[in-house]
Amino acid sequence: MITPPLAPDVLARYPGLEKLGRTATRLHPRRGAVTATESHVGGPLLWPADEPWPTCATPCMVQEEVPIPAELLARMREAESRRTVAHVLADGEIELHEELARLVGPGFSGWGSVNGGPTVGYRYGPRPHPRPNPMVALAQLRAADVPDLPRPGGADLLQVLWCPFEHDTPPWGPTVELRWRREADVTATLTEPPRGETGTEGYVPQPCRLHPEQIVEYPYIEELPAELRALAEADEDEEYLDTFMAPGWKVGGYARWSLTDLSPTPCPRCAGPTTLALVIDSSEHGADRWRPARANGAPDDDDPYEPTGVVVGRYGALRIFVCLTCPDVPFLLDQQ
């Protein structure tokens, strides 16, 4: 896959921005059969036969239903009928929603009905796994395939696993395990990893081959020098971001802070700086500027919207930042 090059006149609008370019590797996942010796999403891992498979013992969050008293539901419907604009709450509706939230209790996440059934309130509560839950293989990345993959301690293979449930450990979502290896050290391999429970289908990836492509990205707006930041804001933030920051699964580059504004990502152990190692995105699509073509110049007819089947949060992205100076490569997760 090849991303169309950035037009020279576009970069010229931001004098000095070219000096801030940083390489990233777009992974371009596309569904297909994969093996344990390849870089991929959602396939078998090159896993040592004598190494225990990671499990999750952190309680998962499950959705519970709470009945809503008919009297409260009637008051809510009466207040809603007084709206003059469909999406603008009528007087008193906020207070009724707060009353409902108190009734449902901690973990309140809304209300609704299914297939014409009763209207109920929803809340999330912790539930221990019946036994430590075997994690799901999410991705395997080889340094030989992915130019921007960090290589802590000389590792040339990164394996990412997670527990396919929601958890209340920041950020809300799956618990994550990273394994860094040297491929040459793995001789006898595990042929059939254990299988566990699945709570969220969007956390079970579809097998995808990768088509890594190294590109150049530029900083998030809040990381720009003042004069460049002013230019970007004058051009509208989204136009700058859609032009200079790649969407989809990628390794390296810059992080896009679409929900929280720029946030620190200190190492959880030494509090030093971390490096963006991997972006796990719900979609491969961004602005047309990033739509790839095949290496021979032909359009990517298989260009899918969400090839991996992975959905993070509210259709967002999970980013993994790693510390390359601490032993054992501690990491930090952020969801946008």
Rank of each mutant, 00 (worst) to 15 (best):
I2C: 12
T3P: 05
T3A: 13
T3S: 13
P4E: 06
P5Q: 02
L6M: 13
L6K: 08
D9S: 13
V10Q: 14
L11D: 12
E18Y: 05
K19D: 15
R22H: 13
H28I: 06
T37H: 13
S39I: 08
V41P: 08
W47Y: 10
P48F: 09
A49K: 10
A49R: 11
A49P: 10
A57L: 00
A57Q: 12
C60S: 14
V66Y: 01
P67L: 06
A70D: 07
A70W: 04
L72F: 00
L73F: 04
L73K: 02
A74T: 03
R75Y: 01
M76W: 01
S81C: 11
R82H: 02
R82K: 01
A86T: 08
E93W: 06
E93S: 11
L96F: 12
E98V: 01
L100F: 04
L103Y: 09
L103S: 05
L103E: 08
F108K: 00
S109F: 02
W111Q: 00
S113L: 10
N115D: 08
Y124N: 15
R127V: 15
P128T: 12
P130E: 01
R131N: 14
N133K: 09
M135I: 15
L138P: 00
A139H: 10
A144P: 03
P147C: 04
G153Y: 06
D156H: 13
L157N: 09
L157T: 12
L157Q: 11
Q159S: 12
V160Y: 09
L161P: 07
W162T: 07
W162Q: 08
E166Y: 15
P171H: 09
W172H: 09
P174M: 02
V176E: 10
R179I: 03
R181W: 07
T187R: 15
T189W: 10
T191E: 11
P194I: 05
G196F: 09
E197N: 05
T198V: 14
T200M: 12
E201N: 03
P205H: 06
R209H: 09
L210T: 08
P212D: 05
I215A: 07
Y218A: 03
P219L: 00
I221G: 08
I221F: 03
A226K: 07
E227V: 04
L228C: 05
L228M: 04
A230M: 04
E233D: 13
E236R: 14
L241M: 13
D242G: 06
T243C: 05
F244G: 06
F244D: 02
K250E: 00
K250P: 03
V251Y: 01
Y254T: 03
R256H: 14
W257K: 10
S258Q: 12
L262R: 15
S263T: 15
S263G: 06
R269W: 04
P273W: 13
T274P: 05
L276K: 12
L278D: 08
S282W: 07
S282L: 00
S283L: 14
G286M: 12
R289D: 00
P292R: 05
P292F: 01
P299G: 07
D300R: 05
D302Y: 05
P304S: 10
Y305Q: 11
Y305W: 10
V311Q: 11
G313P: 03
R319L: 13
F321V: 08
T325R: 02
C326W: 06
C326M: 07
P327A: 14
D328E: 08
V329L: 06
F331T: 00
D334K: 11
Q336L: 02
